[in-house]
Design a protein around this nucleic acid. Structure first.
Ligand code: FES
Ligand code: FES
Lengths: 155, 155
DNA sequence: AAATAATCCCAGTGCAATAGTAGGAAAAAG
DNA sequence: CTTTTTCCTACTATTGCACTGGGATTATTT
């Protein structure tokens, strides 16, 4: 699970759509403008999100995109998995291919699998509504956000 | 904190040195041979590890490398930080540069920081001796290793 | 002293993935 | 039938990664 701009942009877009969930569909042109991103690049990302069923596209004039479900139904992991070229991170045990010859006795590969599963677990339990709530807290009265920040600084 | 071959190879080498800790210094030629890695590439990695003080180099014939301290003093995080080009992962808040203009009101960047700190916390508490013990368990009687595996499969 | 065996240092190269650009076809609305 | 949007495919430029190579330096061995 590697994070590139594609995944990061996708999250920003999904977050934008979640913020304006009640407005119905929104055009790429608007989203890209508001988020200061390349419209054509966002188009490609929307294509992936659409094919995965995360968003619904409305073609033609006055069309655009909207979330297929309510924001609470989306985890960050879901969004990242759709946009990123997965199956990296622990190359010794590829999904379909033959594993590394020293896989049986080697322990380092287990470290990377552990990292992977840890991130997945974290992002699986982080929904768009969680993020919206954090954003509220960040701007106004902190509650959950402070808890999370303290965890972050604990490191 | 991004993981490329450089970091992965570094861990394998450090693990190898930890396994043969009592033997004194070992030449790159030997390590590369045993681990099936490019000697010249390992040389570069050793240079970083040496400059960071993680290993001690002995030049000249019959020279080589050995750990500067006992295996229990090394965390995986330490090794990775030395070898990988850090300061990626959350490009909106670079260490020395100016942060993203929307950093104050944007929440997505916090997600990536959270991922980063989670991985750091995990790898900070994982020492080379931990890994050696896991390896023992993996080959023989499982104890800690099973605990860790169950956590992994829980996802 | 000379040959040898190792680290050190720095430069260059090939490749693959990322991060976009570009152009136009299809669909829906006015 | 014109405009506005998504859709689809191809192309490109840059970047970073994963090495490769050549030689200088240092120490051992003979
Ligand atoms: S399993 Fe491939 S190097 Fe450890
Ligand atoms: S802070 Fe840069 S995009 Fe969110």
């Amino acid at each position: 699970m590697r994070i590139s701009t594609k995944g990061r942009y996708a999250l920003r877009v999904m977050l934008y759509l979640a913020e304006h969930y009640t407005l119905g569909h929104i055009a790429v042109k608007v989203i890209a403008e508001e988020e200061s991103l390349s419209p054509k690049y966002i188009e490609q990302i929307m294509s992936k999100l659409t094919k995965a069923g995360l968003v619904i596209a409305v073609r033609g004039a006055n069309g655009g995109y909207r979330l297929a479900n309510s924001p609470s139904n989306y985890s960050v992991a879901q969004i990242i998995k759709v946009t990123e070229n997965n199956e990296d991170f622990s190359p010794c045990a590829p999904a379909g291919g033959t594993p590394c010859p020293r896989y049986k006795k080697c322990i380092s590969s287990d470290v990377w699998q552990l990292v992977q599963s840890t991130i997945e677990e974290l992002l699986d339990n982080l929904t768009l509504t969680d993020l919206l709530r954090m954003q509220q807290d960040k701007l106004g009265t902190p509650s959950l956000y402070l808890t999370y920040l303290s965890h972050l600084n604990k490191k």
